[in-house]
Write a protein that binds this DNA or RNA. Structure first.
Lengths: 113, 113
DNA sequence: TGCATTATTGGTCATTTAACCAATTACGCC
DNA sequence: GGCGTAATTGGTTAAATGACCAATAATGCA
């Protein structure tokens, strides 16, 4: 049966992955990576959803440690929680490329027959 | 407003992340990484859930391109979809470490006062 | 103080997810 | 063919997720 340590490990990892597993949240992280810190209203405008929705997404990312926030008056700026996010997203990108490559090959194989 | 290309990019990334964002699925990937290919019944035994549940998790991972399967008689062996999974998981690990480090520092700061 | 702006939180509702059991499919073997 | 094992799929149900609107902080400024 499954080890207690392994279970906790898996849960901790899944927690971070879950935080990132949403198109809007991926987009937010990507945007901040490319263009630096943004406040909630800027992100809201870019995304085109309700402010409350964006705020909740940001809270999820912050709780996971992916982002951090900094208050400045009434506005709250969100930035990357650590540099390692960059490596992580690069890894994700390779995964995506590998997948597309395989899909393409499979497609080729199908139309060849 | 949000660009169509960016939206699709974000969705593709989120799709993979969603596939991995479950403790059991993370555990499965981790197990196969460390010990090589496993069949459904082996994984079922290790995990301690219903066979159907495990099978569905494996389908999710396969559809995302994280795993691939190979039939051998009535048993189906699942293995990693590509080597880049290793890099990806390493990146996730760094993210986790960074987070814990920050949590620890925050805890220190709290108990210092 | 009153008002506008920014952000978060409460409430509600529709959708998605994931678990199990049961039924079915697929294969190998007697 | 009949049986047993391995795996997937159908069906149902409980829980989680995410969207919006509304209400509530929290701050800056006239």
């Amino acid at each position: 049966m499954i080890d207690e340590t392994d279970r906790l490990r898996a849960e901790a990892r899944a927690e971070i992955l879950k935080a990132l597993a949403h198109p809007t949240r991926v987009y937010i992280v990507d945007l901040i990576q490319r263009e630096g810190p943004h406040c909630v209203c800027q992100l809201t405008e870019r995304i085109g959803a309700d402010t409350s929705t964006v705020s909740r997404h940001l809270t999820v990312l912050k709780n996971a440690g992916v982002l951090q926030d900094r208050k400045e008056g009434t506005t709250v700026y969100y930035s990357l929680g650590c540099d390692c996010i960059n490596d992580f997203m690069t890894g994700l990108e390779s995964l995506l490329r590998a997948r597309h490559l395989r899909d393409a090959r499979r497609f080729e194989a199908v139309i060849q027959r």
